[in-house]
Each structure stands twice: as structure tokens, then as C-alpha cells.
Design a protein around this nucleic acid. Structure first.
Length: 602
RNA sequence: GCGCCCAUAGUUCAAUGGAUAGAGCAUCGGCCUCCGAAGCCGAAAAUUCAGGUUCGAAUCCUGAUGGGCGCACCA
């Protein structure tokens, strides 16, 4: 793990890192994506023709809506027509007539009201698509180099098993993490686990009175949850019990050795279970800092707020009013003297800013926390925090019947989901690949099952409510993870067959040529990958990657099914096999961004 | 009561303010003596309603309807 070295400022503001100026980014961007390069180019023409004093920031190119309109298109003439006081077609004509040549551009055409349709040069397309083969970045620029981003995701609670409600934060957060790493960001993935809070008094009482030691040995976290639920229920009807829970909590908070030891045990048991699941999901963190990590900073955080005149007493609690921002009041210290999550989150931001100097901090949680994040982001800004704070929220996971909840007991445990996924995949693999050894079948089924679960979640816009159904989460055909893995495995097979049948074949001796329309379409899709990655990262939407990969795989499948390659003549054959290889790389790289594995055989 | 989010084909989902709204599943019809049919090719099928902004709206604004979620001491 590398952290950006702290700057040599001696006169750092003393308190919590707030107010520290953001470090300058000294690295310049090295390369651009296709749309960035073409946009810069055509914006330059607009600027030269129509003067730099008008706002040209919106001038750019986009992928063409339809192949008949070229490969990329520029729609700027229409929107600028009014400002320029000229008909849009005249604007486009002037741009096209005066555009300097660009290596990527074969020709420009004007269509409709003033669209400029851009046709890419085949030579450039071939060169660009061939270059992907040698590039571990697959053409993706490291435009985030020199920037640090903290991604806060997953964040399960101690003493509660992970259920299907946790999968979204974990999977989406992990993909955002991977996207930023590919773009060159220094990413710090932090699992901010819920290891502190009022629930521990309840758990301790439950642990002391209801514990089944055998069950604890077998399924520790499940047992902890069971005693928690039982103790919680008792606390609601038994005033005396509730008081005892509070006393246990106070003892823990004041450092009582026995309760502290118990608390550490709960954390240890939970973390080992989380790790088991993270390992299955291929998720790893740079930091696992629970809320308790910030405990000793909470009092000072509230003191700072009071010092700045932002916090005041109200109804026995210490609160921050946010009326100017039209937000509800935010409690930073409870009337019983305890702190709550807003305080912890503020202290966490301060700590991260001080330690890592991030350019931004990204939180991945469900939609119910939107108000909380608005409140505490606002407070951080008022305290002088300049770091960009983003809340990436996603819709709740629901069951067809109702919202699932721990209390109603209608939860689906994450491990059960993963088990079921692997089993279903195994049934299919063992039926369709009986020649494979059972170990291999298991291994493939694992990758396919987990891939299906992940893809089902990542392939849709995060900001929608997901209704969980087994069939959807475990879909193995159509727009699914396994479809993409299948496409990949077929490609791997093509390459094997090629070396088998043409042992003397030399792929390097031949250049790629595009003879069929489907081949050009495939090449065009392949060179779009960098743009897609940038869009997915900036919008925090892994589904953008999933959409793209599905399109790519569909395009490839069509190519595969309709164009002969091993049976094609020499030259064409090698070209097509190479195109297959590049497609495989992009598929694999893209699936990696989603955390999905690509077995060579399925 | 106030606030946030959502509404697209039978159904589950796509669509950076741009040209003819795309897919999966389901339905119907083709394609395995041939490189892997978890596949390919084709058919039918949709922007909740009413206004507005714009050269151009599924997308932006206002309102209505229907749904989800949140709003003082849980996180």
C-alpha cells in the first residue's frame, strides 16, 4: 500500500486536517481517449473559426447514434447556431471546410439539420485496435495518476451476519475501487465496519445469559446475532433488562477490561467471517478501520464544533442546526453524553484528510442514508474541509413479498446465496462438460456462480430498487455474467484450436485486416473501452461497464457465429484470430473491473 | 406535514438534450454432418398523465397520479 507522502508544510492547521489546502496535481495527463482527442480537435476548429470568446466547453463528439451516421458525431452546430447568428448547416460547413487533417479521421459529412458525422480512418482504427494487444492498460489512460481517493464501502456490522442487503455496497464499491485503480488513482479502500455503538450492551447481556457454546463454535456470528435478537426483544419489555444493557455499555465505553475483552472477541469472530466472504467475492481492502478507531477524537470534534459556534445545546443534546442549508438538525452528542454516527463520520473525514490528503472520499451506501450524508458533508465543509465528498447511493434490495429485515427474519444470508449460485452453476457445468474432472467442474462452477451473482447486481443502474429473485440473481443465459464468461471461453478455445491445427502459424507475421462489416464493428467497439471506463468511473456506475461488455460479447458472438476464421484463407485467418485475442483481453479486463473471473474453459 | 428517489415492450432492465427508444426473459419462426447452440438469425411488442423550456425531450422545469425511502438522541 502506498500513500502519497505528506507535503513538507510546517504550518499545517492544527486541527483535524481541515483547512489543509489540497495538494497540486503535478503530473500532467499523458494520453487521451478517442472522444477526448476528437473533441479537442473539433473544438479547436470551432475556436479558430468562431473566436475564442464564445463558450465552446460543450463542443465535443459522441459515438454515432447509428452506423449510417458514421462512427462519431458532433452536434455542436445546432446549439451554437443561435449564438453565432448563423444557420446550423452553415456553421457545420465552415467547420468541415476548415478542419485540419487528423490521423484518426477519414472524412467528415454534414447531415440533417447540421450534424457533423465523423468517419474514422481504417488504417488508424487498425493501428489503434492492434495497440491494445500490447497494452496492459488496454488503452485506458492513467488520468488519475497523482490523485488519491478513499473509497469507503461494504462496512458491515459486527455480530451480524452479512445478508443480501450487504452485497450491493460490497460489489459496487469494489468495482468503483477497481475502476479508479485502472485509471491510475491511488485508491485507499477502507472498510468502515460497525464495531461500536449501543448494540454492544444488548449483545453482552445476550451473550452472558443466552449463549449456546456449541452454536458459537459452529456458526459464531449467527449465534451472536441470535443472542442479540433475543436480548433486544427482552429489552423492549423488561425495563430492568434494558437498564442492565445500558450499564454493560457504559462499562465497555469506560474501558472495563472484561467487557473490552468480550467486545474484541465479537470483532474477531465477525472479521474472520467477513474475510471468508470477501475471499469468496474477491474483495480486499487496504484498511479495515471500524468506528471505534475514531473514538478518542469524538469529544474534540464536538468541542471544535462548539468553538466554531456551529454546535449548541438543545433539549439536553448537542446539535448543529443547518437551517441555512434547509436541512434538519443534526445531533452530534446525545443527551446521555454519548456520541453518534454523525460525529464519528466527521471525525473519520478529518482523520482521513489529515493522514492521506485525498482528492476525494467516496462512500457507497444505500439510499436511506442520503440525508445523513448531506448533513455531515455540510458540516465538514463548514469546518473548512476542501476534499470532495461523494455519497454514491444505491437502491434497496427487496424481496418480492416485502422489504426484508432482520427483525422479520426474512433475510437471505449472503453465504447461502453464494452456495446456491455455485450449486446451480455446477449442475450446468457437470451436464454440459462431463469430460471435465470434478475438481475443474467445481472450480468453473465457483467462478461462474459468483460471476452470475455479481453481474446481476452490477449490470443495472445502482440507483434503482432491486427486487431480489433467485432466478434473476443466478441467471446463466442472456444478459448475464456467464454469457460473458462463455464468450471468453469460446475465444480461448479458438486460439487453442488455431495452434493445434496450424502449429507453424505465426500470428505476428500478419496484420489485422477488416473485410467484413462485423469485423469493423467489433474493432470500433474495442477502441471505445477507455471512454467507457472513464464514464463508468466518473459516474460511479459499474453498470456502464457491464452494458458495454454485453454489447461487445454480443458483437463477438455474432462475428463468431457468422464469419469463418479457422477455415478462412491464410492472412484473413490470422487477422481474425488476432481480433479474437484482443476481444478476449478487453473482455477479461472489463470483467476484472467488475470483479468477475474468466475461466479459460467453461 | 416536509424532503429525497423512481415510473420505458407482458415482464426485468438499457438509452452522455440529438437523427428510426435498444437488450434479456417469456411468445412465435428459422439455424448444429461445419471453429464450443450457456449461442446465432428473424418476428411481434413500450416512454404513467397534463402543461412548459428547446431548433430538438424518455432525459430539463411545473403540476397530477402511482410506488419506494427518509425526517432529534440507531447506524
Amino acid at each position: 500500500m502506498q500513500f502519497k507522502p505528506t507535503s513538507g508544510h510546517i504550518l499545517l492547521p492544527p486541527v483535524w486536517g481541515f483547512g489543509i489546502p489540497r495538494p497540486m496535481n503535478t503530473k500532467e495527463e499523458t494520453n487521451k481517449t478517442i472522444t477526448e482527442a476528437l473533441s479537442d480537435w473539433i473544438r479547436g476548429v470551432f475556436s479558430e473559426q468562431f473566436g475564442a470568446d464564445i463558450d465552446l466547453s460543450g463542443v465535443g463528439v459522441v459515438q454515432a447514434a447509428n452506423p449510417q451516421f458514421g462512427d462519431y458525431q458532433c452536434n455542436a452546430a445546432m446549439s451554437l447556431a443561435k449564438v453565432l447568428k448563423r444557420p446550423p448547416r452553415a456553421v457545420s460547413e465552415q467547420v468541415v471546410a476548415n478542419a485540419p487533417s487528423h490521423p484518426a479521421v477519414d472524412r467528415l459529412e454534414i447531415a440533417g439539420p447540421g450534424f457533423i458525422n465523423i468517419y474514422l480512418s481504417d488504417a488508424w482504427l487498425l493501428q489503434t485496435v492492434s495497440a491494445i494487444d500490447q497494452d496492459s492498460q488496454l488503452g485506458v489512460p492513467r488520468s488519475g495518476a497523482g490523485h488519491t481517493v478513499v473509497v469507503d464501502y461494504s462496512s458491515p456490522n459486527v455480530a451480524k451476519p452479512m445478508h443480501i442487503g450487504h452485497i450491493r455496497s460490497t460489489i459496487i464499491g469494489n468495482s468503483i475501487d477497481r475502476l479508479h485503480r485502472l485509471l491510475g488513482y491511488n485508491v485507499i479502500a477502507d472498510n468502515h465496519i460497525g464495531d461500536w455503538g449501543t448494540q454492544f450492551g444488548i449483545i453482552m447481556m445476550g451473550y452472558r445469559h443466552f449463549l449456546d457454546k456449541d452454536a458459537l463454535a459452529r456458526r459464531p456470528v449467527e449465534e451472536l446475532e441470535r443472542v442479540y435478537v433475543k436480548s433486544y426483544e427482552k429489552s423492549r419489555e423488561d425495563e430492568n433488562w434494558l437498564t442492565q444493557c445500558r450499564e454493560e455499555l457504559v462499562k465497555l465505553q469506560s474501558g472495563d477490561p472484561e467487557n473490552t475483552a468480550l467486545w474484541r472477541e465479537f470483532i474477531g469472530l465477525s472479521l474472520s467471517e467477513f474475510d471468508r466472504i470477501y475471499k469468496r467475492l474477491g474483495v480486499s481492502f487496504d484498511l479495515v478501520r471500524g468506528e471505534s478507531f475514531y473514538n478518542d477524537k469524538l469529544a474534540d470534534t464536538v468541542a471544535l464544533l462548539e468553538e466554531k459556534g456551529m454546535a449548541e445545546e438543545s433539549e439536553g443534546a448537542t446539535v448543529v442546526f443547518l437551517e441555512e442549508e434547509k436541512l434538519p438538525v443534526c445531533i452530534v452528542k446525545k443527551s446521555d453524553g454519548g456520541f453518534n454516527y454523525a460525529t464519528t463520520d466527521i471525525a473519520t473525514v478529518a482523520s482521513r484528510v489529515e493522514e492521506f490528503r485525498p482528492d476525494k472520499i467516496v462512500y457507497v451506501t444505500d439510499e436511506r442514508q442520503q440525508l445523513h450524508f448531506k448533513q455531515f458533508f455540510t458540516i465538514c465543509r463548514k469546518l473548512g474541509c476542501e476534499t470532495e465528498l461523494n455519497h454514491v447511493w444505491f437502491g434497496l434490495m427487496r424481496l418480492p413479498e416485502a422489504t426484508f429485515s432482520t427483525r422479520q427474519g426474512n433475510v437471505i444470508k449472503l453465504e447461502a446465496l453464494l452456495d446456491e449460485a455455485e450449486q446451480r452453476a455446477f449442475d450446468i457445468v457437470s451436464a454440459s462438460s462431463p469430460e471435465m474432472s470434478e475438481d475443474d467442474q467445481r472450480e468453473v462452477a465457483r467462478a461462474v456462480g459468483i460471476g452470475a451473482v455479481k453481474y446481476a447486481d452490477l449490470s443495472q443502474n445502482p440507483q434503482t430498487t432491486v427486487t431480489f429473485t433467485w432466478d434473476k440473481a443466478l441467471a446463466l443465459d442472456g444478459n448475464s455474467g456467464p454469457y460473458l464468461q462463455y464468450a471468453y471461453a469460446r475465444i480461448a478455445s479458438v486460439h487453442d484450436k488455431y495452434t493445434e491445427r496450424f502449429p507453424d502459424g505465426n500470428l505476428d507475421a500478419f496484420d489485422i485486416v477488416l473485410t467484413e462489416p462485423i469485423e469493423r464493428e467489433l474493432a470500433l467497439k474495442l477502441i471505445r473501452f477507455p471512454d467507457v471506463v472513464k464514464r463508468a468511473a466518473s459516474g460511479y456506475k459499474p453498470s456502464t461497464i457491464a452494458d458495454y461488455l454485453y454489447e461487445l460479447a454480443q458483437c463477438y458472438s455474432s462475428f463468431y457465429q457468422n464469419v469463418p476464421f479457422l477455415k478462412a484463407e491464410e492472412g484473413i485467418r490470422e487477422s481474425r484470430v488476432k481480433l479474437c485475442g484482443i476481444t478476449a483481453q478487453v473482455l477479461r479486463g472489463g470483467l476484472q473491473l467488475l470483479g468477475i473471473e474468466t475461466p479459460a474453459r467453461i
